[in-house]
């Protein structure tokens, strides 16, 4: 089943065309990568998918809803069905990790405090954080922990879809590989579909099932890792040359 379908997407910033006639689809249960050179609009595409940014033409359909003509209540419903991990975690700096994770639970559901505590501890454990970390503020923890906490918060409502914006950037190689394992574990444990923007060649080989390479405003390649090197594109040839 297709969870995301992007058709003929066009994005323009001022007089700069970012995407023109971009098509892709993401199937249920896969880890889907968005790749491409810097400035090609990977993060822009991700932001358009989560309704942070508007696009000029085409359509994006997520979980059966076309987001270009979505009603406010449908949009609210969609937002509860996905989680987003931002590049630097974007944890609310005035709240502790536990409060960060508990926030959507408190807002969207009527749960007792003990159950919320339990869920928070479970989510922290799921991403590999210690229960004692729960009372720290985002400024007191390392970048790697911040990303883990960000994922824990994104998972708070048990979403079907997870969007990850450069999850391993800024991490040391060991933490980055740990994070790759975490992504794979989460998929096998929760069956969550993930869309990942990444530059990290190791992550690409370790985690992705399918991917889209954006180059020159369009999708230069969409499909699995095995066939990617056969595509004639400067970016693809340079990017994958060393790893062949």
């Amino acid at each position: 089943m297709e969870l995301i379908r992007v058709k003929n997407l066009k994005t323009v910033f001022g007089d700069k065309v970012v995407h023109n006639g971009l098509n892709l689809h993401v199937n249920e249960g896969e880890i889907y990568g968005l790749l491409g050179p810097s400035g090609c609009g990977k993060t822009t595409l991700l932001r358009e998918m989560v309704m942070l940014q508007e696009f000029q033409a085409g359509s994006i359909e997520i979980l059966g809803k076309k987001i270009e003509q979505i009603s406010e209540s449908d949009a609210q419903e969609l937002r509860r069905k996905w989680g987003v991990l931002f590049q630097f975690g974007a944890l609310f700096s005035s709240l502790t990790l536990a409060q960060n994770i508990a926030l959507p639970l408190k807002e969207y559901a009527t749960l007792s405090d003990t159950i919320i505590e339990e869920i928070v501890a479970f989510k922290l454990d799921l991403v590999g954080l210690k229960p004692s970390d729960a009372f720290l503020y985002p400024s007191q923890i390392s970048g790697g922990m911040r990303k883990k906490a960000g994922i824990a918060r994104a998972l708070a409502m048990d979403p079907k879809l997870l969007f990850l914006d450069e999850p391993t950037s800024g991490l040391d190689p060991i933490s980055a590989r740990e994070f790759d394992n975490l992504i794979l574990q989460l998929r096998s444990m929760l069956g969550v579909t993930m869309v990942v923007v990444t530059h990290d060649i190791h992550s690409i080989y370790n985690t992705l099932d399918r991917m889209a390479i954006i180059d020159n405003k369009k999708i230069a390649y969409e499909g699995s890792l095995e066939e990617v090197t056969s595509v004639k594109s400067d970016f693809i040839q340079t990017f994958f040359r060393d790893e062949r």
């Binding site: 932001r47 989560v50 309704m51 942070l52 949009a75 609210q76 937002r79 509860r80 996905w82 987003v84 931002f86 590049q87 630097f88 974007a90 944890l91 609310f92 700096s93 926030l103 959507p104 807002e107 969207y108 969007f163």
Partner: peptide, 17 residues
């Protein structure tokens, strides 16, 4: 402004707040 730089406002939007 600081919340905007750390993408906290984006995070709020995607969470539906």
């Amino acid at each position: 402004g600081a919340m905007k730089i750390t993408q906290e406002i984006d995070a709020m939007r995607t969470m539906g707040f």
